[in-house]
Amino acid sequence: MVSFVLIVLISLVFSGIVIRTKSIASGRKGPGIWQPMKDIFKLFKKGAVYSETTSIIFQIAPSIYFASVLMAIMVIPLGNSKGLISFAGDFVFFAYVLAVGKFFNIISALDTGSSFEGMGASREALFSMLAEPAFFILMGSLGLLTGYTSFHEIFMAFHFGSYVSYALGVIATFILIMICMIENSRMPVDDPKTHLELTMIHEVMILDNSGFDLGLIMHAINLKFAMYGALIANMFLGDAPMYLTIPLFLSIQVLFAVVVGILESFSARFRMNHNAQFILVLSSLSLLMFFGVLMVLGKFN
């Protein structure tokens, strides 16, 4: 419950912080941290333009996408307080619920019959598919390390003891950041700054969305950022009391947003055909994590 509220709250300013970091890094004055939210609220109030090619799918898809992200957030715990939904193996539910949103996003892009949006849809489907094993191997290794299978129990039992486990924490954090960037089609994989048709994945998929629907999709991205931020934060929270957990959680989220901003400021987008290799490297990194876990457990003796 606490985590759900906090994630929704932090999602309001997350993009703002990212944009603020980027503007500071590039020496611009830049908008305030509430600007993205103001934009979204403006979108909520606007009327919509629908393509004549589209069908009911195009109308329901943004709602389903948004609902799937909300549902996934419910699974995420906060320190020693459980998420709204918590059961053994809930990380599978988490990944598959997100997949439902993705599915509808893809078919809604195909619904417009546009030559651009199909391209974005194809790439979104491909890249998120390639990122999938990294997440599962990561969760599998964490499960193996701790002996539990739900987010809450895994994070509660995940302690930093030896040097190896610090290394594991670093790798896991890196993998989660990168999965987050891929899922949201951000920097090394895709560049949201080059708006509209030049952007290759996510932004091109939602070319025809407008008004309330576009607002929903935009905010779903904020929520997704905050959600992955919460996952990263949970790696470090452990079993701390609530008055420590909440400030720590918020500061890790802010730090994550700043890291995303810096990453976006100082890196260039890959060529599209190199993305697949990059994402597969992520899977091998999570395999490295897995072998690290085997090492910690002393299976190599």
């Binding site: 909520f44 009327g47 333009v49 393509s51 004549e52 546009s114 651009f116």
Partner: peptide, 16 residues
């Protein structure tokens, strides 16, 4: 509920 009051336009797909 929210979009009920808003204007809705039908147009060709955006061809960039």
């Amino acid at each position: 509920l929210i979009t009920k009051k808003q204007t809705e336009t039908i147009h060709a797909t955006w061809g960039c």
